[in-house]
Amino acid sequence: MIIGIRSIPALLKGDRQADRVVPPSGFTAQLTLFTSAAMAFLAVFALALSLASGRLAARWGEELAQTATIRIVAPLDQRAMQTAAALRVLETTPGVAEARALTDAEQQALLAPWFGQDLPLDTLPVPRLIEITSETEGFAPIGLRLRLTAEVPGAILDDHGRWRAPLLAAAQRLRLLGWGAAVLILAAVAAMVTLAANAALAANAQVIRVLRLVGATDSYIAQAFVRRFTWRAFAGSVAGVVIGLLAVWLMPTGGDGPGFLTGIGFEGAGWLVPLLLPFISGAIALVATAYAAGRALRTIS
């Protein structure tokens, strides 16, 4: 490659003389800035989506994996006995950190949104719920289910896995799609910069011929172009990221609700991830322009 690693500091520092030998370009420069800003804006949202779904997947994975529920469906007179039996089984089950039967008041609170406050729970055969919190490694649901069948006929174990799995998969897929979109956006930046650099190099073919004639090296000529496009991609990207972050920041949050849409955004260190975008865009523009310049220069002796 024409631009070596060692020339990068000099490249960023700039060489006013070298910049002047390539004529200034107005309109196309603004287009590069604009496109780079728009891409960075989109990339911020792609990142927000991936980070949010990543968080969601992690949360669901953790919370749901560590909890399970047992329902005791039994006639009223056997319910207390079976509940006690189930709790005994759970005490001796490896991997169960805590098991606790919900109180009448708690069950009433759970059912209140559907049946109102005045439900006479003690007269209805409402199943008793036992909340299980497992240790980090978890317990074996199949083994527990077998033991329960033998000792507590009315117990039904729900380890949340059945409905957790597809949601988790969806969240993980969404995260993947978000990263994929971000990568695509950066690839589009590379393509855009390559096109713009090719156009600039073609428009300046005469300038390049004159420079070669008077003894300019390829890297000298390339640097004038590379510096410009790197700077434009970087500056455009900074603007896009700032606007994108503002937009994400201003998005309505759902308070403590569990909604997914209202959870899109950044949290904590996640806010720093989009700040990498301008540097990545700049690096991509540098490589893309150096490559385009290398190819264009080879056609001119």
Partner: peptide
């Protein structure tokens, strides 16, 4: 190519 530039 760089040597050509220096030669010129």
């Amino acid at each position: 190519r760089d040597q050509v530039a220096l030669m010129r």
